[in-house]
C-alpha cells in the first residue's frame, strides 16, 4: 500500500492555476523526487500535501485515510515531517530548544502539568533533551547544541532543519530542497545521509530537489512538474534523458546537455565500472518508461527493491504519460 497517495490535486491562486490534476504516489520506504523548473508548483504541492494550503480539488490519502482537510499540526502528529525551502526553525532559540520544540506532538504531559512543574515534566524534558542529543550526534552536529540558531551557517541550518524534522518522529518526510546552499560534495554526503536515515528510521521520503546528481543517486522514482502539471514520471535514469524534461529545464536545448552539465565525473565513472550503458536520447525508452535499464546505481540495491507495485489508476495514468512522452519525442 502506498504511504502517500495524491490524486488530481488542483489549486488556483487568483488567475494562476498553480497546480492542475497532479497525482503522485509514494510507497513504503521509497525516496521519491519532485523536480521541475522554478515556479512549477513543487512547493505548492508540498503545502497542499502537508495541509498548509487547502487544495481546490483533489484528494490526499495517507495510509488509506483521506487527510485532505487535516490541518498541518495534526498531520505533523500523524507522521508528516517537513522542511521548508528557506529554513523553518525558531531562530532566536538554541539548537537544543529547537529540537525539543520539534518533538512537541510527542510530549505526553499536558499544559497544566507543565505549568505547575509536575515531576513527570522534568523526566520527560530530560528524555526530550536525550533524543535531541541523539539526533545531533547522528548528524554530527554536537558542536552547535547550545548555539542560537540565528547565527549558524546556511548549510548547517539545512542539516539542522532535517534534524528537527526527524525529531517530529515522522513516518514520511517531505524535504523542500534539502541540498540548497550546499556544494557538490556536501550534497553528495547528504544523499548518503538520506539513504542511511531511511534505513535507520524506516522512513519514506518525498523530496523537492534541484541538484540533479542528488536526485539521480537517491531517488527511486521521480515526478517532474512543469507549469503546475505533471510533465513526466519514472525512474531517475529515464527522467534524466526524458526529452520533455530536458526541454523544460533547458528551454528546448539538446537532451545531452543535461547529462553533460549535471552528471558528475564520479557518477560517470561508476557507470563505466558497472558497464552501465549510458542512455542516449536515440535509444531512450520512450515506449514504456516503467521498466528502468537493469539496476542503474549500486547504492539502491542496499536499500530496498525498486520494483514498484502500483495501483491500477497509477499504471493507467503512466501509460497515458508514456504515450504523451512518445508524442513529444516524435515532435
Amino acid at each position: 500500500m502506498s504511504v502517500l497517495e495524491v490524486r488530481d490535486l488542483s489549486i488556483r491562486f487568483g488567475g494562476l492555476q498553480a497546480l492542475q490534476d497532479v497525482s503522485l504516489d509514494v510507497n513504503e520506504f521509497e525516496i521519491v523526487g519532485l523536480i521541475g523548473p522554478n515556479g512549477a508548483g513543487k512547493t505548492t504541492a508540498f503545502n497542499c500535501i502537508t495541509g498548509f494550503y487547502k487544495p481546490g480539488t483533489g484528494r490526499v490519502t495517507y495510509r488509506g485515510r483521506d487527510v485532505t482537510q487535516v490541518p498541518p499540526h495534526k498531520k505533523a502528529a500523524m507522521g508528516f515531517g517537513r522542511t521548508f525551502q528557506n529554513v523553518g526553525m525558531v531562530k532566536t532559540s538554541t539548537v537544543l530548544e529547537n529540537l525539543k520544540t520539534a518533538q512537541h506532538a510527542r510530549i505526553g504531559y499536558d499544559v497544566s502539568a507543565g505549568l505547575i512543574g509536575a515531576p513527570a515534566v522534568g523526566r520527560e524534558e530530560r528524555e526530550l533533551a536525550d533524543k535531541a542529543d541523539a539526533i545531533l550526534e547522528l548528524l554530527g552536529l554536537e558542536d552547535v547544541r547550545n548555539l542560537r540558531v540565528g547565527g549558524l551557517s546556511y548549510g548547517t541550518l539545512k542539516l539542522l532543519e532535517l534534524g528537527c524534522a526527524l525529531a517530529t518522529e515522522p513516518d514520511i518526510l517531505l524535504l523542500d530542497e534539502p541540498s540548497s546552499g550546499m556544494g557538490p560534495d556536501e550534497a553528495h554526503q547528504l544523499g548518503e545521509r538520506l539513504i542511511d536515515l531511511r534505513q535507520a528510521f524506516g522512513l519514506t521520503m518525498l523530496l523537492i530537489e534541484h541538484h540533479v546528481p542528488l536526485v539521480l543517486s537517491v531517488c527511486d522514482h521521480v515526478y517532474v512538474l512543469n507549469f503546475g502539471r505533471l510533465l513526466a514520471e519514472g525512474p531517475p535514469s529515464v527522467i534524466q534523458t526524458h526529452p520533455e524534461v530536458v526541454a523544460a529545464y533547458l528551454g528546448g536545448e539538446a537532451p545531452e546537455a543535461l547529462d553533460a552539465t549535471e552528471e558528475t565525473d564520479e557518477d560517470a565513472a561508476l557507470d563505466a565500472q558497472l558497464g552501465h550503458h549510458e542512455v542516449t536520447p536515440d535509444d531512450a525508452p520512450t515506449e514504456v518508461i516503467e521498466s528502468p535499464p537493469a539496476e542503474p546505481k549500486p547504492r539502491r540495491t542496499a536499500a530496498k527493491s525498486t520494483t514498484r507495485p502500483r495501483g491500477k489508476t497509477a499504471a493507467e495514468s503512466r501509460e497515458e504519460k508514456a504515450a504523451a512522452a512518445k508524442k513529444g519525442a516524435k515532435r
Binding site: T50, G51, F52, P71, P72, H73, K74, A76, A77, G81, R82, F84, G88, M89, V90, K91, T92, S93, E97, K100, T101, A102, H104, A105, R106, I107, Y109, V111, A113, G114, L115, I116, G117, V121, E125, C164, A165, T168
Partner: peptide, 30 residues
C-alpha cells in the same frame, strides 16, 4: 509559574508561534 511555562512545551510552542506560525504547525503545534 512563568518559569515553569517557559521551561515546558507550552513556552516553546508560544515562542515558535511568535516567530513563525508555519514552522510551529510543521512541528505539530496547534
Amino acid at each position: 509559574l512563568d518559569t515553569r511555562l517557559t521551561a515546558s512545551k507550552t513556552g516553546r510552542a508560544l515562542l515558535a508561534i511568535k516567530e513563525n506560525e508555519r514552522v510551529a504547525e510543521a512541528f505539530g503545534i496547534g
